[in-house]
Each structure stands twice: as C-alpha cells, then as structure tokens.
C-alpha cells in the first residue's frame, strides 16, 4: 500500500448559508424550524424572480436559474463577500429536468427542431453560466453530478479547492422535480437548493468550521422533524440537512451524510462562538 498522506484534515469555515425548498424560504426560517421555534408547514417550493439578471436573461430565466441565484445570493450576502470574486461549484443530480423533458418530447415528435434557448439551457452547467453572468464573476466555476451523492461531491471538490487555491468558494447544490413520464423513474418531489460560502480560514463571520472524510457502512444522521427528514431522503441536494441542523442548533458534533452507495461523509462540525 502507498501510505496516504497523514496531514491534518482540511478545514473549511462556513461563512454564509442560503436555502430554498418545500416549506423552506430562507436560512433564518430553516433555523427556526430546526430549533423548534416554528412548526414545519408543507408547501411547494417558492422561487423568486431573478432581479440580478439583465432584462434579456431575466425573461428567459427558468426555475432552475431563479432557484440557484436566490439561494446562492442569500449565502453570499450572509458571508459579506463579493460574489464577483468567488469561484463556484454547482452540483445537481437532475440539472434542469423540466427543460430536458421538453427537449425529449420535441425530439420524439415529427418536428425535431428544438429551440436554441432550450438547447443552451440543457447543459448541466447552465446554472453556473447564469450565475457568472448575473454576478459578473469570471472566476472558475464547475458543475458536478454524483446522483444521490451530489452534495458530497460538491463538498469534496470544495475542500480540494480550499486546500490548494486558498480562497473562499461558493457551493450551490440543487435539484428540480421531474415532470412525468420521468417522474416515475426519478421521483424527486420538489425543487430544493442549498448554498454555502466556505473559506479556508476563520473570519468574524464564520459560523463553524468543518472537516470531512469518507467512511463505509455508517448510518446517516436522521432529522427529528419527520417532514424535513423526508426531504433529506427524497431530494439528493437535501442530504446536507443534518449539517444545517447541527449549525442551526449550534451543536459541535460529527454529522454523517449519505454520499454514494455504502460510502458516507463524516462531517465534524465545530461551532464558532
């Protein structure tokens, strides 16, 4: 065996959080749910208008773009960093499922010409592209997918970035629900997006520091609120919710998040006080 490097695990400081999902409108509201100051009320995900985009792009801004922009901006605003200077990692299992459905319907019809906008929106990095246009960020940006483990993929990529490039980075993890007939094959119930600004060192804004490593055959943390735990189980991007629960309750602890197959990510949370 080649000895793995025994260096200290890479720490990431959480500088900002943004979130949108079914019955979840913001990070402060999710904190209220996790700290039992508010009861969870089931509702469809509400996605705001993309004010930040130039008018031509705003008109074309589909749900996927508005969802990721809103949660991403909440996290960046919370971090007090400049969006234009932040590199970004977008990760999603679905990409724009609604757009892909429309393209497949057109391609199965007698008139196969798909709309140019639908085509350029079909790339998995469309959210990343719109984000860079909206914020004017020319920094590196990537778009990942690891099926149900797409949050874990983004976190690992983010830790690699922090360790080597040593600049803060934005993580945006999202999924959209599929229309039928794909919904039967991939029953994601609704749209969800979580965004995190991570930094390589502590600032006065830091909420917590985290380190992460992979482990095999460890059960993932469950959530006390059954409806939120159901989101965790049914929307890949929502697998990060146990981490947000620990942050909301200021608990320094080890959180186990499902990654892929038998692999889990063990995230050690240290709350900054």
């Amino acid at each position: 065996m080649i000895n793995s490097t025994a260096s200290a695990p890479i720490a990431a400081w959480i500088e900002g959080i943004g979130i949108l999902g079914p019955g979840i409108s913001s990070w402060p509201q999710l904190q209220a749910l996790f700290t039992a100051q508010e009861n969870y009320a089931s509702a469809k995900t509400v996605v705001p208008v993309a004010e930040l985009l130039p008018p031509a792009e705003r008109r074309r801004a589909v749900q996927m773009v508005r969802l990721t922009l809103a949660a991403g901006l909440e996290a960046v605003t919370h971090s007090r960093l400049n969006a234009a200077a932040l590199p970004s990692i977008f990760s999603s299992s679905s990409g724009d499922s609604q757009n892909m459905h429309a393209i497949c319907e057109t391609l199965a019809s007698s008139e196969r010409e798909i709309s140019p906008t639908r085509f350029h929106n079909s790339v998995h990095n469309a959210a990343s592209g719109y984000w860079s246009i909206a914020t004017g960020s020319t920094a590196a940006s990537t778009a990942l997918c690891a099926f149900d483990g797409s949050f874990g993929a983004a976190l690992l990529e983010g830790l690699g970035w922090l360790a080597t490039e040593k600049t803060p980075i934005l993580l945006v993890v999202y999924d959209l629900d599929y229309p039928e007939p794909l919904r039967s094959l991939r029953p994601v119930p609704d749209a969800f997006c979580a965004a995190f600004v991570l930094a390589p060192q502590r600032s006065e804004n830091s909420l917590a520091s985290i380190t992460a490593h992979l482990a095999v055959d460890v059960s993932a943390n469950k959530l006390h609120v059954p409806e939120l735990d159901n989101l965790r189980k049914t929307i890949p991007a929502a697998r990060c919710l146990p981490l947000l629960d620990a942050l909301a309750n200021s608990r320094s602890e080890s959180v186990v998040l499902e990654y892929i197959e038998q692999s889990s990510l063990i995230v050690d949370v240290q709350i900054c006080r």
Partner: peptide
C-alpha cells in the same frame, strides 16, 4: 473503487476540468 467519484458536466470543458 470506493473513493470520491463524480461526473463533471460543464459542456465542452468537462473532461479538461
């Protein structure tokens, strides 16, 4: 394998990234 794995899908830069 059992380690970190993901697809990078950034259109035509994917497999450079």
């Amino acid at each position: 394998l059992q380690g970190p794995a993901f697809t990078v899908s950034t259109a035509c830069s994917s497999s450079a990234k």
